Computed example of a mutant assay.
Amino acid sequence: MTVLFVDQPAQLDELCAQLAGSQWLAVDTEFLREKTYYPQLCLIQVANESVIACVDPLALSNLDPLLDLFYHPDTTLVFHAARQDLELLYMLRGELPQKIFDTQLAATMLGYGDQTGYASMVKTLLDVDLDKAHSRTDWKQRPLSDAQLEYAADDVRYLRDIYLIMLESLTKQARLTWLEEDFSALSRSETYQSDPAFIWRKIRGAGKLKGIQLAVLEKLAIWREQQAIQRNRPRRWIIKDEIMLDLARFMPTSMEKLSRIRGYEARDIERDGTEILQQIAKAIETPEAEWPIMKKPVPLTNQQEALIDALMALLRKYSDECSVTPSAIASRKDIERLVRGEDDLPLQQGWRNEVVGHYLTDFLNGKLKLMADHQHILIEQG
């Protein structure tokens, strides 16, 4: 099938006429983010049963005809690992399509594994080896070669077939509804929004700080996020995490003391030093009652760790029996929360509870006994 390259408004209108009325559209994107805060969209690949196209957003000033199709309430958008593609759509329109199918999530319901890559899925389901020659392509460069366009088109060429295979399997096994909540989460705007007030928690090493040091880290993290957005540069280009931690740890109060922070370059101090000192001063003035707190869970006992291991064994056993990837049901963190006595976990709701969750609860309540026969785990009613 010929791959259409669309870089003129008239071509886009013609493509959209061909795609109009599709029940589903396979979609992928190519973008760059190494030097920017926001991803820069470089190519959109789209396909239905009869058309494959690569649309050039660098040449087209108005993508609305295509986006109108993507956002049509009767059209399902099919992605593999949808998060980053949807983030781009959210950036373009400020809202998200409401009908999503993610083949990477669907793979977990069919026992293909967790975080399964696209190439692996194509090989498993279609016995096709994808060409990886252009995996490091700079998608901003123009013109794109025919080989690059074919490589990009493969990301939707086979996605169509994978989607139809998975849809049939999920329908036969009555598992399509199991994915509704996970797909719905992909269509919620809060999934792609981060609260700057809590971004300090994501800085590796923050747990080693305490008291006023955390207040400094919080102020610096908020400032850095704002600057990264304003300058459209990666956070690490504003200040690296390790420098942020040292600034919070030592709380310098002058340019001379700033220069003692290991790795903090003179040019960066000259550019941002005054504002950094202002943020540190604000944090130092923060009343103790307003200091952020890094909550650390009480360490698990050896017996609790053993119990978690037993529950993980049960999780794997029942997941294997119904050909579902265990991580689609619960992670070890989820099991740990269960052992700590938390209620209302996803594991205890809906299909997850039906497939596995209630067995784990029964085991915790002494209603099931765990045994083995050298080759298999055996379960006996308590």
Rank of each mutant, 00 (worst) to 15 (best):
T2F: 12
F5T: 05
V6L: 10
D7Y: 10
A17Y: 01
A26L: 10
F31R: 07
E34P: 07
I44W: 06
Q45F: 08
A53Y: 02
C54G: 02
P57C: 07
D64F: 06
D68C: 08
L69F: 09
F70D: 00
T75S: 08
F79M: 06
A107G: 00
Y112K: 09
Y112P: 00
Y112M: 11
D114P: 04
D114M: 08
D127S: 14
V128M: 12
L130W: 07
A147R: 14
D154Q: 11
V156Y: 04
Y158M: 07
L164H: 11
L170C: 10
R175V: 11
T177F: 09
E180R: 15
F183D: 02
F183V: 05
A185G: 00
P196I: 05
P196A: 11
W223G: 02
A228F: 03
A228G: 08
L245W: 10
T253A: 13
D272Q: 12
I284A: 09
K296H: 12
I308V: 15
L311A: 02
L311E: 02
A313V: 11
D334H: 01
G341M: 11
E354F: 11
T361H: 11
A372S: 14
A372P: 03
D373H: 07
D373Y: 11
Q375K: 13
H376T: 09
